[in-house]
Design a binder for these strands. Structure first.
Lengths: 215, 215
DNA sequence: TTACATTAATCAATCGTTTGATTAATTTTG
DNA sequence: CAAAATTAATCAAACGATTGATTAATGTAA
């Protein structure tokens, strides 16, 4: 059936996403991926053409989901820039666990110096989110909600960087936070609330003008 | 001469550090490393035993330098906790460029799920720095310099995370900041001052009590 | 049958490592 | 000091293993 084919491709992508995020692109062999997915090795090339094709397919599958979520938030004119930032932090905190493997994979491969144009494609994907955040921050400055001298680029780096640090160094982060952030229960009960709460407080104290300190 | 032997091993480590940080552990072949270092392939095993031995040697070489720098700062009782944080940010900003490759390498491999105990060794190395920062922050809270409700662990994650984000995603960070952060001149003239200035302001607004807002 | 799906077997290339031989440097001995 | 002996450094070549990819054969469903 057509349904089965799609489901099987999706299953392969799910497994590949996890294995790639564990081992990295070079460390994950096609044999291991096909083995864990329970399919013949040749099926990877049959469906995705090559190992790199499989790798790219993982990202292309995510693009559709990323596209409009942030844009809808950014274009909403009914709420303040600060409310948008708070809403963003909420979504952002939820995604910490949802797209765990993918985030890890994305940012690890971004730092690689491969000859490919893969890095450029990943950069374009990431810049979509960055641009929306940039727009919200500029809006907040323009209408006087935020301080005039905030460093927009660095704030965005802090937002993504803090999350990535925790996700990409689970051993250090667990020791630092005092609980196992690889445990789903701990993520749900402790990590997500802590990240959201901290990031809101951090942004509040850095972004907002002093006369709006209560919220 | 003895001098030459040491220099050659150091030279191999320098090259390996760069190549590993570009390609990752799996992506960097011993042939490429030995080729770029201008030595015979067998010399890597002759000096370091194995590829993993070479990899570990890169980190072990750095440990000695890391060890006492932060500890001296932390144990200094003549300056305030906030001054220590400022000094730390200064050092931290300088290292952005100095240990560029190393930082990149360290944090990329930390996220890998290899069977080895390599991850544990790297975690222990990283935790040394983390612990010193933790001590300074606790001191600041205890003596009333910092707010009582700050999230120490998350502040540390922000400090390291922001820097790592910029280092590990140079393409995105360059587009975000508006200049090429892979250009040494730009790093010196723009990136380093910007990171230091931003991080001090960010920490000041989050850590310090309101009555100490001027500094 | 025809077109697609799946498999096992196989390919050339590359991997990290090891080998045996050779050269350079150092130490020992006379 | 000089010759001999020993150690260290370096090299080209090859090893077995694994890689991503391909092939040819078989299975399956319309």
């Amino acid at each position: 059936m057509d349904k089965d084919k799609i489901d099987k491709k999706d299953h392969i992508l799910d497994v590949a996403e996890r294995v790639f995020s564990d081992k990295g692109f070079d460390g994950a062999s096609t044999r291991l991926i096909s083995g864990e997915a329970g399919v013949n090795m040749a099926m990877l090339n049959y469906y995705f053409g090559s190992k790199e094709g499989l790798f790219l397919a993982i990202f292309q599958r995510k693009i559709a989901n990323f596209q409009n979520v942030l844009q809808n938030l950014g274009n909403d004119e009914s709420i303040s820039a600060w409310d948008k930032m708070q809403k963003y932090v909420e979504m952002y905190g939820e995604k910490v666990v949802t797209n765990n493997c993918f985030q890890k994979l994305l940012y690890r491969e971004m730092g690689m110096n491969r000859g490919n144009d893969l890095s450029d494609k990943l950069r374009d994907l990431l810049m979509k989110n960055v641009t929306e955040l940039d727009k919200i921050l500029r809006e907040g400055i323009a209408n006087g909600e935020f301080k005039k001298d905030i460093d927009i680029a660095m704030v965005i780096a802090t937002l993504y960087g803090t999350k990535n640090y925790i996700l990409n160094t689970p051993l250090v982060a667990s020791a630092l936070l005092g609980y196992d952030i690889q445990d789903d229960k701990m993520i749900e009960e402790k990590l997500k609330p802590q990240i959201k709460s901290y990031m809101k407080n951090l942004l509040k104290s850095y972004l907002l003008n002093d006369n709006e300190h209560k919220n």
